[in-house]
Design a protein around this nucleic acid. Structure first.
Lengths: 262, 262
DNA sequence: GAGAGAACTTCACCTGTGTGAATACGTGGT
DNA sequence: ACCACGTATTCACACAGGTGAAGTTCTCTC
């Protein structure tokens, strides 16, 4: 079930059959379904489990008193919302769905036993957390220094590459289920300006965006105009084979190659 | 030596005498001194230890190809730069000093044994990491949604409260050793605009800023105009006594009150 | 305590992005 | 097949904040 999570973690660590089985077990417990635009957790709630997105998109956001809203991060299939939040007494922000979402609630105990018994998973979850932090830092740069076009271009690059990492792209294309307002709330731009920028990107052929379908004819070009540097996604596992574009080769089954467990 | 770190961690956990002693030991090894404006770690370096700031200020930053620079976070005395970075193969950003800095390099092994033997410290370090992540998220909101005045006001509130948490304020005042350019690089504003905003804040009496001395006559007022909500700093340890302003009572020695160790 | 460089301040002018509103388009529900 | 509402598009105008440059004031250092 949690193919996306497993696929993502394998960017970093070679998981054994056992590891993968344990992740599957963890994801099987307490599944939940949400419609689009529902809050999953609200500011002030006391977190007592971790949400693993199995299907659909969600986002973390904060709202200011006067209604201004900032999307702080996007959650894609395979993403864990805050491993170890339970350390904090209450949430300082909310998480809501963007599309229809299927997720697994993973209890504190499950997560604990998972990490105790599977050092590879522990390592991989550390990597996942640090990459999430690096993404947040890159967003800081995005909002602080980049122009409107660069911001949106950068965000599209990031989302496309993250989607590719969990197998949710199809050649140059993917599904982008966010409205222009969402893009604005994530990039600190007004919906009007997001629209202007998208028109510009369409005209210059950087993106093809129709409904919820995004095509990026030339990802390198988009990266170039957005000053996008992949490093921060830390996709560079030692010994992994990348093609010229940084996309991974068809995954070979690594169970045989990694007999050691724990 | 690491009084600031200990004082900060005690916002979250009651540390035993042993815990504190272990932290002191860890901070004693491999001390280093830096002048102002020196890089501590550079993008591309492979991290193999964690830096604990004992004295002085530092910052994490990224530079775009064309020279634009974004300060991503400030490190104050008592701050740990990225516990567990060693999981990543190389740094995707740099850290440099702002003032003269004294720090301790804590090796991977030291940190491991520290957390293995001291569950309280482990918990407290988790809290520290999660708060750092929450700060980063709040910066995302700051850069994405707030006006110039709100951004700078918010940053000043955050720094003042963090300094207070490690005992580096004196009533309404503290030392703020950053230039207006640094403030601009942190808030995504030009130095000229930072200056405009500071003048405005001076005129309205929100801050008194002379040289490196900052006084905030009315912190609540500054928080109000900056839409600052302390929640994200998670200073609310169960059972801790706060006065009306959220500043802590003089620290009572908690060793006697917490006989349990480990 | 004089000189030099960094930091701060102010100015005039410019532009990227926001605002509010009107219009057009899409798509799901009945 | 139609209605309705969310979404996208476009326009005209306003303004927050950027730019470049010219002082001015600190604050070191010798």
């Amino acid at each position: 079930m949690p193919q996306h999570l497993i696929r993502k973690l394998e960017h970093f660590a070679r998981l054994s059959y056992d590891d993968r089985h344990a992740l599957e077990e963890a994801a099987r417990q307490r599944g939940r379904l949400f419609d689009a635009h529902q809050d999953i957790i609200r500011e002030g709630d006391a977190p007592d489990h971790v949400n693993l997105i199995l299907e659909g998109w969600a986002c973390r956001y904060k709202t200011l008193e006067d209604g201004r809203r900032q999307i702080i991060s996007f959650f894609l299939p395979g993403d864990l919302c805050d491993p170890h939040v339970f350390v904090l007494r209450e949430m300082d922000h909310s998480i809501s769905t963007i599309t229809h979402v299927r997720l697994a609630e993973i209890s504190r105990d499950t997560l604990l036993s998972l990490t105790e018994r599977h050092p590879r998973i522990t390592q991989a979850l550390w990597w996942e957390m640090l990459v999430a932090a690096a993404v947040q830092q890159e967003w800081t740069v995005n909002l602080g220094q980049r122009t409107g076009l660069e911001r949106i271009g950068h965000l599209l690059c990031e989302l496309f590459i993250r989607l590719r990492g969990v197998g949710l792209t199809n050649g140059n294309s993917c599904i982008l289920p966010v409205t222009q307002m969402d893009l604005g709330d994530a990039t600190g731009l007004s919906n009007v300006h997001v629209n202007r920028v998208l028109q510009e990107m369409r005209i210059s052929g950087l993106v093809v965006l129709k409904g919820k379908h995004l095509t990026v004819p030339d990802l390198e070009a988009l990266q170039r105009v957005s000053l996008f540097n992949v490093n921060y996604l830390h996709l560079d596992r030692e010994g992994r084979h990348l093609d010229a574009n940084g996309s991974e080769q068809p995954p070979q089954d690594s169970a045989a190659a990694t007999p050691e467990r724990c």
